[in-house]
């Protein structure tokens, strides 16, 4: 005789508001949303390049828009999310050890320290090279 299951499994569905359940979930959602701002800035750069390529008048018009108050606020918001991306990215990538010390992964603090050091040096170099002599 074939065995029969008398189970009636009750299947629950994840709430659409699952990410409000604890602060770590919320930070995760915000971290994932940094992608929107990262992509937005890439498109702004493309726009800027297009304007620059189209000649002085077009670039002047672009700068009018670029340095208008609403655009500066938008760029400020993008910068905030970009910084959040950097910080969360450095924290997240420590999970894959790039090297080992005596067979053990390096301490998280060391990896983050290396990232931050590279970050600072690169930022200073880029900042200097964007405008020649600051």
């Amino acid at each position: 005789m074939a065995t029969q299951t008398v189970r009636k499994p009750y299947v629950r569905h994840r709430s659409a508001w699952w990410w409000t359940k604890n602060p770590r979930y919320l930070l995760f959602q915000v971290r994932e949303l940094t992608s929107v701002f990262v992509v937005a800035y890439a498109f702004l750069l493309l726009w800027q390049l297009w304007a620059l390529r189209s000649g002085p008048e077009s670039y002047d018009a672009f700068l009018q828009m670029w340095y208008s108050r609403p655009m500066v606020i938008v760029n400020g918001i993008i910068l905030a999310f970009a910084l959040l991306h950097s910080v969360t990215w450095f924290a997240a990538t420590t999970k894959v050890p790039l090297f080992r010390i005596h067979g053990r992964p390096p301490p998280v603090a060391l990896t983050i320290g290396i990232y931050v050091a590279i970050w600072i040096v690169l930022s200073l170099v880029v900042a200097k090279l964007l405008y020649g002599v600051p």
């Binding site: 910068l79 970009a82 991306h85 990215w89 970050w119 880029v126 405008y131």
Partner: peptide, 24 residues
């Protein structure tokens, strides 16, 4: 992710906000 993490903040700062903040 690494490129954006290392380069985007400084680029946004210098390209979008340096003039409004009178850095340049």
């Amino acid at each position: 992710g690494f490129i954006a993490a290392f380069l985007l903040p400084v680029l946004i700062m210098m390209n979008s906000l340096a003039y409004p903040l009178r850095v340049v």
